[in-house]
């Protein structure tokens, strides 16, 4: 067929769809704004729910794109896609232009910037960290407070930047709950004598194997769960973090001290995705992610025929869903060229 397809973003969705495109016989260019492919997966330690090392998935994806039909251009941010006479022109920050017959946008998500939830003191108090930072600590085998102590009491604050009108995000980020459960287990494994508490509004265990992991965290690891959205965090004289919350099931306000607090940061439409949307006339939804053409039948399609979406640039999505979404985008590309004949 010898059609050229450009994939924008070399995260999990981009890499998987590039591999599938190559399988279908297209020649593929992937543009990646970072210096290496992998996206958020690069920063992750173990994956939920089966706690597989993320390196295994990373190796699989690197293998997927390691073929002659696929050209990877790193340190290259795409700013605009325009359509002319049924063909596409992709513009990068270096002001270079590339032609393509179809586009798959896989610009993914950015993590919520925790300093926006000021009352949690991220960036102000030592030892208030994000879930992403905790993954790096696990990866480096260096789970410690800033003064070098091993944390004995760790709290997880769910829904940071999700389900929160005050930061403009109405939606649920979907995978923070199960991430917290996984990370709570890992804290208990790293520091067996530690106490771990999760503060949640609802525990959302909608994926396969999630509820089982939640149960395991209680049965095997003694993780504690308190139902209440944390109101604020402060630091006391001993340098411990003091958290305030309502224990809604008891019906009383509660104070508790921690060595370390982990903010379960949610997902937002990526900045590069937003720029691309504005410059290219791609529609976005109320949640700021790319708006799919149809919730059920067109989740890979948008408002421009020939530009397809895959992964977390359309909605919060876990890795399993992202990889499946990437493959279904390729189906839509194949169908697009068939229709055009």
């Amino acid at each position: 067929m010898n059609k050229e397809v450009i994939v924008i973003g070399a995260g999990a969705a981009g890499m998987e769809s590039a591999g599938q495109l190559a399988n279908e016989g297209f020649s593929v260019k992937i543009f990646e704004k970072d210096e290496s492919p992998g996206g958020h997966l690069k920063g992750w330690y173990h994956l939920f729910p089966n706690r597989r090392d993320s390196v295994e998935v990373m190796d699989y994806l690197l293998d997927v794109i390691d073929r002659k039909e696929i050209e990877l251009l790193t340190n290259t941010t795409v700013t605009k896609v325009s359509k002319k006479d049924g063909k596409f022109v992709v513009t990068t920050t270096q002001n270079k232009e590339y032609n393509a017959d179809a586009i798959i946008v896989t610009t993914g998500f950015d993590l919520f910037r925790s300093e926006r939830k000021e009352e949690y003191g991220y960036g102000i108090y030592d030892n208030v960290i994000t879930s992403a930072e905790l993954e790096k600590m696990f990866r480096n085998g260096n789970l410690r407070c800033t003064d070098g102590r091993i944390p004995q009491k760790v709290g997880f604050i769910h829904c940071v930047g999700s389900r929160d009108e005050k930061v403009g995000n109405f939606y649920c980020s979907k995978l923070c709950c199960v991430s917290a459960v996984k990370q709570a287990i890992e804290i208990r494994e790293h520091v067996p004598e530690s106490n771990v508490f999760c503060f949640y509004m609802d525990i959302r265990m909608g994926g396969s194997g999630y509820e089982e992991l939640y149960r395991e965290s209680q049965q095997k690891y003694g993780v504690n769960y308190i139902r209440g959205k944390v109101s604020e965090v402060a630091e006391n004289y001993e340098g411990k973090l003091v958290l305030k919350v309502e224990d809604t099931l008891v019906g009383k306000p509660l104070k508790m001290e921690f060595d370390m607090l982990v903010l379960m940061v949610g997902m937002e439409m990526s900045e590069s995705g937003k720029e691309l949307a504005v410059n290219s006339g791609l529609l976005t939804g109320e949640n700021r992610f790319f708006a799919p053409a149809d919730h059920h039948f067109g989740s890979n399609k948008g408002n421009v025929d020939g530009i397809f979406y895959a992964g977390a640039c359309t909605a919060t999505m876990n890795l399993t869903e992202t990889l499946a979404h990437a493959r279904s985008a390729v189906d839509d590309v194949v169908d697009y060229f068939r229709r055009k004949k």
């Binding site: 389900r163 509004m201 609802d202 139902r227 209440g228 959205k229 944390v230 109101s231 604020e232 305030k244 919350v245 309502e246 224990d247 809604t248 019906g251 009383k252 306000p253 509660l254």
Partner: peptide
């Protein structure tokens, strides 16, 4: 309201009296 209790957790009055807006 989704009964998250954020209001009651931060409530100054709730420190000393039985006041929970969530409740």
């Amino acid at each position: 309201c989704m009964e998250c209790g954020c209001c009651a957790g931060t409530c100054t009055s709730g420190n000393f009296t039985h006041l929970s807006l969530r409740e």
